[in-house]
């Protein structure tokens, strides 16, 4: 570089090298990003190719079996639907109430700061630890056995922090003059919260709820801990029944050595990802709509 200096100031000469470095850096960053996206796309494509040939009505409407060609995800699909319904019923009211309390009712003192810190730490606890707690408290402590309700309660503990944090953000972003207007007309805190703040925060809360529930759909470890069974050849009739779920079924099939079961797992993954994609698309759509409305 020293030799190439023919004329002009060293600064200008340096600029060429510096610009080259900048271009190189830019290319590197772009390349790495696209590489990551393409790699993940490739993995998903691979799963799609492996699984698509097994994906038919028979697969969706059969119970699992020792024979791959007779196997299906009927019980897993119903287990997942049951689970999501129960989790939603348990976790949404409690989490939204918590967010409302922290944002609208509590005095911003030491205790509410403690609760906030506590919630953000709960959000970081590994899912398998929730599984162990669920095993100790719900399965063994409350004698709920290895039932849907044990799984739903455990998962509700797991996703509540996520819903609380998202709901608080949504409630926080409601303009303060809406509250002032309500108070000025003589509304109580609860009337203000219920009739004005919550409806305004609704899209944000809904987005958070959908994302949290889609996390719950994919969680495997806590369900394995509380002992969701892998071979379930019946449909659960109530919350106290044993169950299996899509991710458990996938885990079971993947951990078998035979190629056919791996392909069954790929087919189940397609179903799981399709459900997640629809939920995420709904969340993005709602967010988009509410952003437009605010503008």
């Amino acid at each position: 570089m020293q030799k190439s200096r023919v004329s002009g100031t060293p600064y200008i000469d340096n600029l060429v090298a510096r610009r080259r470095k900048a271009r190189l850096f830019r290319t590197l960053c772009a390349g790495v990003t696209w590489l990551g996206v393409v790699l993940l796309g490739l993995l998903l494509y691979q799963a799609g190719v492996d699984g698509i040939k097994w994906l038919d009505w028979q697969f969706l409407s059969s119970f699992p079996s020792r024979f791959p060609e007779k196997s299906g995800i009927k019980s897993a699909l119903f287990g997942t639907l049951w689970l999501i319904a129960l989790i939603a019923i348990i976790s949404i009211p409690i989490s939204v109430a918590t967010a409302l309390y922290l944002q609208e009712f509590s005095s911003k003192g030491r205790i509410s700061r403690l609760i906030e810190l506590n919630i953000s730490n709960l959000a970081g606890v590994p899912s398998i630890v929730y599984g162990i707690i669920g095993l100790a408290i719900f399965v063994r402590g409350f004698q709920l056995e290895r039932s849907l309700i044990s799984g739903a309660l455990t998962m509700s503990l797991l996703i509540s922090p996520v819903i609380i944090i998202a709901s608080r953000e949504a409630i926080k972003s409601v303009p303060v003059n809406i509250r002032h207007a309500a108070y000025a007309l003589g509304a109580t805190r609860w009337q203000t919260s219920w009739s004005h703040v919550l409806p305004a925060a609704f899209p944000g809360i809904l987005t958070g709820v959908i994302l949290a529930l889609s996390r719950a759909i994919g969680e495997t470890a806590p369900l394995i801990m509380i002992g969701a069974l892998t071979y379930v050849a019946f449909l659960p009739a109530g919350p106290m029944d044993a169950f299996t779920a899509l991710p458990i079924q996938i885990f079971n099939w993947v951990s078998r050595p035979q190629q056919e079961f791996h392909e069954l797992a790929a087919a189940a993954i397609i179903v799981l990802l399709a459900v997640l994609l629809v939920m995420n698309a709904a969340a993005i759509y709602i967010r988009h709509k509410s952003e437009q409305k605010l503008k």
Partner: peptide, 24 residues
């Protein structure tokens, strides 16, 4: 385009990554 795709990828269940590990 890229940001929502990344957010979507962050939401893929970990058991699916286990499948990728074993089969790919």
């Amino acid at each position: 385009i890229v940001k929502p795709v990344l957010e979507l990828l962050a939401g893929i269940p970990t058991v699916v990554y286990g499948y990728f590990a074993l089969t790919f």
